[in-house]
Design a protein around this nucleic acid. Structure first.
Lengths: 242, 242
DNA sequence: GCCAGCATTTCTGTATACAAACTATTCGGT
DNA sequence: ACCGAATAGTTTGTATACAGAAATGCTGGC
């Protein structure tokens, strides 16, 4: 489990930054997003504590926050595990994100300052370049940055925070259910089109653009026959939980 | 601060139920909703621990969860305090709830089984009776039960969970900004009308009903001139935080 | 060879101790 | 009388110890 964390911890401690729960939350989140911690991975408190060089108190706080962010599951007297959202929850997460991000995009149309638009443009370009170069991690990073910036700039901060959460959860399930045949969930025209609608101030077009984009993304996933296996797992495992 | 909690704690411990973080979270939430803990109230860990008869470990976990639920604020090295959402956040919370609850209602139209409809009907009736009798706490309880049941029955569980959170936050700001002149935020016709649309299976009518209901509710609040005072407080207090 | 029951080991739940940070008060100077 | 600094008092941050629950592995019987 330690993987590359040890180095980061060493670097951070040398830099004088104290390791806090925030640090652990970020690192685990990133690791889950990068699929370095696959769903179902056990996350014992002592082990995490040793990895990050802190005691269980700090780890516990981090785990509680990760559970609130839907990144892990925490059942009483049981080891925390990386969450594995079901196919059904995946569909529902996409639907929720369509609703929220569509509204945010509509609110944002025509309201973005030049600097933000330029930053978005830069991310779109970088994403295209990364895709062309076959650098998938970099492409994902820029794609996430686009949607994260939309959430941050949302005039309605409550919706913005909800969108941040949904973007994270969507990314996790994309990594989880990505069709093995498809190398990358990249839709070349969607982000540029969205940006154009936002810049031109067309709320409903922007909303529709988000809807189509997310529908297309969901269609790229492999949400088919695995359902039965997961159901069996749930039933034979611990059906009464939750 | 102890107020009536001591009794509840005693009753719970006698009943053999162990006091856990869940218990504390529920009690604090209810107390905030009932305005027994006004916004800004300090919640020191040791004090809460003494009230509930547990140590700081349990209290800390409860506080972390309450912070995740937007009930309290937790800044480093500072006492946890009951959150006092600003006027701006109040407006944004209402807007977010309109979006989410409107969608949930639309999804739910024509999909509710007879039993759920009957339960909803019962709550609507009880709410009207409580209002007629001037029993405001009971009225609020039934009103909350209606919206909470909608959130629970949402076909999209992700949206349902988000709605549960938004209903709680809306209730808190209603209690906070209720116009002093208005005794009760009760709109006699809204809930029955919503129920009719849900029963008859009219998605868009149900959505519009929710929108109108929440707009009317927001208009009943006193969201006027206080804004300047809050801004001054924030600026003179700790402007650079968050 | 297979299964039930028990022992061991692992892990979480909770309490407590000590250190660091923040708050408030008081005292001295102007 | 007012302002600033030092100090006493709270309150949180973190580590650690012990108890209880759950999972794992082992042994004995069939």
């Amino acid at each position: 489990m330690s993987s590359a964390w040890q180095d980061e911890v060493a670097a951070a401690t040398q830099a004088g930054r104290r390791i806090s729960d925030r640090f652990i939350v970020d690192k685990v989140r990133q690791a889950v997003l990068a699929q370095r911690l696959p769903p179902g991975t056990r996350l014992p408190e002592v082990t995490l504590g040793e990895v990050f060089g802190v005691s269980r108190s700090v780890v516990r706080k981090a785990l509680t926050r990760l559970a609130a962010d839907h990144v892990i599951t925490q059942q009483p007297n049981q080891v925390a595990r990386v969450r594995a959202p079901s196919v059904e929850e995946t569909r529902e997460t996409f639907a929720a994100r369509r609703l929220v991000e569509g509204e945010v995009a509509a609110l944002l149309a025509g309201q973005l300052d030049a600097e933000t638009l330029a930053t978005l443009e830069a991310h779109v370009d970088s994403e295209a370049r990364a895709h062309a170069a076959g650098d998938e991690p970099s492409r994902i990073e820029h794609s996430l940055a686009i949607h994260h910036l939309l959430a941050e700039r949302s005039p309605n901060r409550v919706l913005g925070a909800m969108l941040t959460d949904l973007v994270l959860r969507t990314s996790i399930v994309i990594a989880l259910y990505k069709h093995s045949g498809v190398a990358s969930c990249y839709l070349a025209d969607d982000h540029p089109a969205l940006l154009a609608h936002l810049a031109r101030g067309e709320p409903e077009a922007a909303r529709r653009c988000i809807h189509d984009h997310l529908h297309a993304l969901e269609r790229l996933l492999d949400l088919g026959p695995r359902e039965t296996r997961i159901d069996l797992m749930a039933i034979l495992g611990q059906g009464e939980a939750l």
